[in-house]
Amino acid sequence: MIDFRPLSDDHPDLAQSPLLRAALLTLQYAQEHGTIGLTTAKAFKRVFVHWAVKQFAWPGSSAEEMFRYNKVINEYEFPPLEVLHYLLITLRLGRHFKGDFKLTKRGAELAQAPGKLFAELVPFFVLEIDHASYARFEDRPFGKWDVWMNVINVEADHGTTERALFAVFYGEEHDWDNDGWREMAAFSSCVLRPLEWAGLLMQTHEERGAKHVHHVFKTPLWRSTLMLDTDDMLRPVSDQ
């Protein structure tokens, strides 16, 4: 079972979520400007995409890095914004009207309520979205969120590596430098990355010889909001 505790609007751990931050910025931009312009394909226009790239400060997608090779960036070239756009429309926090994106009444209310917006946005994003739909490959890992999150809850409690975490679920024989790389990529894209975008996990990278090692940690937000069946297997924070 996976339950999310409600968090107050001023809860400090909400700052851990890149997706929540991006949603707040987008909703508040639309509130301040009245609308966000859309292309004929109903994507956000480049002027807003460029603003979002700079303001979101998305992990691994800094404005400096993205504009280094591309002077013009479209929505589909900035996946976090493309996914967020879909979420806001699907959750009816915004709508398309006469060539513009406009907030709904609910969207306007949540633009000023981070805790409530998190509760609306993040569980749906993590648990309901087909994460393979915006990944580089369409492969999907075998498994389900209830198992993944309860196991990660224990295995990453003191930190672990992406490789070790993958091995718990799928065996030791897979690695990035053998035929198992596609399975590892699917797990990373469809499980670890959504949790990182939600702000529940964080990853750090280390070079060991010719290999890149990805370390995985639970964030304070994970501990603040998630209630899982394996919580009773964890040691209290004071004992760690």
Rank of each mutant, 00 (worst) to 15 (best):
N150Y: 04
R5M: 06
A111P: 11
A185S: 09
R5P: 02
H158G: 06
N153H: 04
K105Y: 13
D146A: 15
A132F: 00
T39W: 14
P59A: 09
A132K: 03
T230Y: 03
R223C: 10
S61W: 15
M66S: 10
T161V: 11
V191I: 13
G115K: 02
F217V: 01
E64Q: 15
A156T: 07
L24P: 05
R182N: 13
Q28I: 02
P141G: 03
Q240D: 14
S8E: 13
F137Y: 08
V83K: 11
K71I: 12
A41V: 06
V168E: 15
E173W: 02
F187C: 00
V53T: 06
I73Y: 06
R92G: 04
G171M: 06
D239M: 15
L91Q: 06
K42A: 13
G159W: 04
G171K: 09
H212N: 10
V191C: 14
L234A: 06
E109T: 07
Y170K: 02
K102C: 12
H50G: 07
E75T: 05
F137S: 00
V83Q: 12
P220I: 06
F187P: 10
R235H: 12
D10F: 11
A113M: 01
W145I: 03
F217N: 11
G37T: 00
Q240H: 09
T35G: 01
T40I: 06
A135V: 00
R46M: 10
W222Q: 08
A135N: 01
E155I: 09
E207F: 04
P220N: 10
I2H: 10
V53A: 01
Q55G: 07
T104M: 13
M233I: 02
F101E: 00
H158I: 01
A156Y: 01
H158K: 15
I73A: 11
E155Y: 13
N150R: 02
F217T: 03
V53W: 05
A135S: 09
F56I: 10
D146M: 00
S62F: 05
Q31F: 02
H85L: 06
D232Q: 12
K116I: 00
G37C: 07
L127E: 01
L38P: 01
G209R: 08
H205S: 07
Q31M: 04
M149D: 03
F78L: 13
M233A: 13
E183K: 09
D229G: 14
A210F: 12
W181D: 07
K42F: 09
D231K: 09
V168P: 01
L87K: 05
H85F: 08
E109S: 13
K102F: 03
E138Q: 11
R5D: 12
E207Q: 15
Q112K: 05
E128T: 02
R95K: 13
L7S: 07
E109A: 05
F4R: 08
H205K: 14
F166P: 07
L201S: 12
K54P: 01
H174M: 07
A23G: 08
L25P: 02
P236V: 10
L93W: 00
H212A: 12
K54S: 12
F101K: 04
D232T: 14
V216F: 07
Y170P: 04
T160N: 08
